[in-house]
Amino acid sequence: MQIDVWGEDEGALLVCREIQDVTADVKTFLFEPTSPSIFQHEPGQFVTLQLDIDGQPVSRCYTISSPPTRPYLLGITVKRQPDGLVSNWLHDTLGPGDLIRVDGPFGSFTPGRSVASSYLFLSAGSGATPLASMTRTAFDLSSGGDIVYVHSARTPADILFRRELEHLTNLAPRISVHHVCEGDAPGERWNGLRGRLTPEMLRLVVPDLHLREVYCCGPAPYMAGVRAMLADLGFDMSGYHEESFSFEKLPVDEVVAVLDAQGEPAEPDAAPAALVDAPAAPTYSIEFARSGRIFTCRADEKILDAAYVAGLAPASSCGQGLCGTCKSTMVSGSVDMQHQGGIRPREIAQNKVLICCSTPTSDVVIDA
């Protein structure tokens, strides 16, 4: 009998089975469990890789590009970044047969089991990975909703999963894929949609835009442009969802995930507070028991932020309560934890907390 590979609280130990070249600088890494089990996740979710690179513990989050409908292998698709610590290590060092520890799955950027009548998928660059998982899932399940998928790339040589997507469209007429390229590739002139995504292109390829649920993933400037474009077209933004991660360009202990599952633009800076005396937030003692370090943390301050100020560097990745990297056991005390799905109910019952999204409500002792 197969069991869920994610049953372990400390992450699953996986073995790399195959590495596929997607483009000149993008590879897909396929993993399988080390014991008889299957992967269970939703299309669009991500996992956190727990790595040891030159003796330094490093965590990174990558979207699962494989669909949950193919549960015996899990794939992540990684673009090599010029200064990317983890992407370069994966491309240059990881090979078939190597073991890796992975935690997850996490994230709410997914249609889940809800079925809309029709979808519009928009992606740019590596943002194709979650939408590829969603498209593969829809194909495998022969779900009733039709999909228009528009992907933006620099050149035709940079289009992720190009041949596979063309194959899916030939087999499933309800899946329509369109690529937008900024320029030609060496040896290939691009004759399709050219330049950058525009409202005119959307009107051409998806005339029923207003009837669709939109999922968007890509670099922050791309998604900001999409939001503005959809708003100008009168699209109801309650049907818009986006996700973007920016890990590789940041220091190991300052990784940031940018996520707005509801698709709303970030709020502008708040207006200055009224010039009145406000009561200071209470301050509590935080102890990391194993290291013996004790520092203070305000009641309106995240424990992880206070640890950084104190000169400590706990493991963390997303900073939003999504990935579970900073999961720790609370020996005593109480916190207000506003997580985004990075911790399971049974773990909370075992006094585990995510310190990146927890503020203290008393003195706290952490097993760290």
Rank of each mutant, 00 (worst) to 15 (best):
V309H: 11
C16H: 04
H241C: 10
P130C: 03
T325A: 14
L73I: 14
S332C: 04
P360D: 08
V331G: 02
A310Q: 03
P173K: 05
V252C: 08
T169V: 09
L85H: 10
T28A: 15
S35K: 12
V258S: 13
G107N: 07
G145A: 08
S59G: 15
L197K: 01
G127E: 06
L230S: 07
K327E: 09
G107D: 03
V86A: 05
P111M: 07
L99Y: 11
V150Y: 04
R162Y: 04
S358H: 07
H179N: 13
L30Y: 15
E347K: 08
D103E: 11
S59M: 12
F245W: 10
R113I: 00
C356I: 08
V150E: 02
C326E: 02
Q320W: 04
S59K: 04
L275S: 12
Y215T: 00
A299D: 11
S142G: 02
G292A: 07
H41W: 14
A278K: 12
A281R: 10
F46D: 06
V102D: 02
P43R: 01
D83I: 14
L99C: 13
G107R: 06
R194M: 01
E164Y: 10
E8L: 10
I159L: 13
H167W: 10
L49C: 11
D54H: 13
S117M: 06
S117K: 10
D83Q: 15
V205R: 10
G319S: 02
Y62F: 03
D253Y: 13
E248W: 07
V15H: 01
D336E: 10
S246N: 13
G144V: 11
V365S: 07
T34Q: 15
T198R: 10
A266M: 06
A220E: 14
D367L: 05
G225N: 13
Y308M: 13
I38K: 06
A266G: 09
A185E: 07
C323F: 03
A313N: 11
A116Y: 02
N351A: 14
T28C: 01
W6I: 08
R290F: 07
V258K: 14
